[in-house]
């Protein structure tokens, strides 16, 4: 559990970060909270000769809530998400999900930006951000660009972010309706056996909008447009729940690990999604 030697940088502005990334290419990695990267380095599974710490870089913190949406700086920690009452009022699913990530010590260090940028299919925030239709802001040598969360993830640890880019913020349209983040895990600190993020809008007894994303059931987070569509126009009765879970099953592709075999994960994914929809509907 001893990492290989690496050079440590602590630049104070983004220009410094970018120039280091340009200089060292894929030999360099930026680090936010470090709670994914450092264990991988200690296991010598990640080889990072040049480690760039973002802690001292300005402009990456803060949560701003406006009429157009919510902007969360990349270095905002999970604890800050949990502790921000205005944020919880505007987008309560964020607190519900963040409370199910790791444990309090890890949440004090772990950041939203690190969680979404790392591309680990086990992380909870990527699926959540797909559910919320978030946009990720990236900065690189060629300037700033925005990538929708739903188009960001390519494979495990493979994302649309270029080697010389840094994810600086997450922007979320103000969510409407009921919400739920339902996660089954083996113990505190564990990744999900299966997790579902649901936002749902109700008009009278009819569902008018629904957004569904699943976590740790494929090598990327899964935004299941079909599952959401199956609910729209229904009263979210048993038939609609069944249609939504069936649609979701078509989108996920879990693999066997110590949490269990594929059949179990698919079954639990269905149960978790049903419960998430039911809870979100009850809050809508």
């Amino acid at each position: 559990m001893i990492p290989a030697a690496f050079a440590y940088y602590r630049p104070t502005d983004m220009a410094g970060v970018i120039s280091l990334l340009q200089e060292h290419g894929d030999d360099a990695r930026v680090m936010a909270g470090g709670h994914s990267l450092i264990p991988m380095m200690k296991l010598r599974m990640a080889d990072v000769p040049h480690l760039i710490d973002l802690q001292a870089v300005g402009g990456l913190s803060g949560i701003a809530i406006g009429s157009g949406g919510i902007r969360i700086g990349a270095m905002v920690t999970q604890s800050e998400i949990i502790d921000d009452d205005a944020l919880s009022a505007a987008a309560p699913i964020l607190r519900e999900a963040a409370l199910q990530i790791a444990d309090p010590q890890v949440r004090n260090m772990g950041t939203v930006g690190g969680n979404v940028a790392n591309g680990d299919p086990g992380n909870d925030m990527p699926g959540l951000m797909q559910c919320l239709d978030a946009t990720f802001s990236l900065i690189g040598p060629d300037g700033v660009r925005d990538v929708p969360a739903r188009a960001f993830y390519e494979a495990a640890y493979m994302t649309a972010r270029g080697d010389e880019e840094v994810l600086t913020a997450v922007t979320i349209p103000l969510p409407a309706g009921g919400y739920a983040y339902e996660k089954q895990k083996r113990k505190i600190g564990d990744y999900a056996t299966a997790a579902a993020a649901v936002q749902i809008v109700k008009d009278g007894d009819i569902c008018t909008a629904a957004s569904i994303a699943m976590t740790n059931l494929s090598d990327t987070p899964i935004f299941s447009e079909a599952a959401g569509a199956a609910l729209i126009g229904t009263s979210v009765d048993d038939a609609a729940l069944q249609a939504a879970t069936d649609a979701m099953q078509g989108d996920i592709d879990p693999s066997e690990d110590n949490r269990g075999p594929v059949a179990f994960k698919k079954h639990v994914a269905g149960v978790v999604l049903r419960r998430a929809i039911a809870r979100a509907w009850s809050r809508a």
Binding site: R259, G260, V268
Partner: peptide, 11 residues
Amino acid sequence: HDHWRIWKTAN
């Protein structure tokens, strides 16, 4: 008796 083995018993 982890989750999946309990689930398997039920299954």
